[in-house]
């Protein structure tokens, strides 16, 4: 195994991960809700009476993050996203991610971070499943095709 030392960012990734955990802790201990992006967005498609404002507020905060990041993080800390996938690939991937996270009832946040923290066996199975096909897909795209 060969490590990509140039792109390896243990400290900022750990700090970012701690922030994700802190956000999940804050939502849980204030609103009693589990932080899962799929579930939060799903509840807005379509919005239901009495169960909308918290979702909208959360998504609003999420969408404002790039602007706030520019104020508070030093320049250059957050790199430009590298999106190498073709347009057709992006569309196909979006459809798969949308369908799959809904059908599997969660994504990297709900199953990955919160589910594992909750010691949920269901979320462990989900996380191992999407990581497995993630590894296989990148292997095929980068080393077979």
């Amino acid at each position: 195994m060969q490590i990509d030392w140039i792109h390896f960012t243990p400290w900022s990734s750990l700090a970012g991960g701690l922030l994700l955990g802190l956000a999940a802790a804050l939502l849980l201990l204030s609103s009693g809700r589990i932080l899962g992006i799929t579930g939060i967005v799903e509840g807005l498609l379509p919005p239901k009476a009495g169960d909308t404002s918290w979702r909208v507020l959360f998504v609003l905060g999420l969408l404002l993050a790039p602007v706030v990041a520019k104020w508070i993080f030093p320049a250059g800390l957050i790199g430009t996203p590298r999106i190498d996938t073709s347009w057709a690939g992006v569309v196909l991937a979006g459809l798969l991610v949308g369908f799959g996270t809904r059908y599997g009832a969660g994504c990297t946040s709900g199953h990955g971070i919160c589910g594992l923290s909750r010691l949920s066996l269901r979320s462990l199975v989900a996380t191992l499943s999407f990581m497995f096909t993630g590894f296989v897909t990148v292997f095929i795209v980068r080393h077979v095709l």
């Binding site: 999106i83 798969l96 799959g100 993630g134 897909t137």
Partner: peptide, 13 residues
């Protein structure tokens, strides 16, 4: 099944 499909999309993009 949902999680497996999600992983394919996650890896792809």
């Amino acid at each position: 099944i949902g999680s497996l499909l999600f992983g394919v999309g996650w890896g792809l993009a």
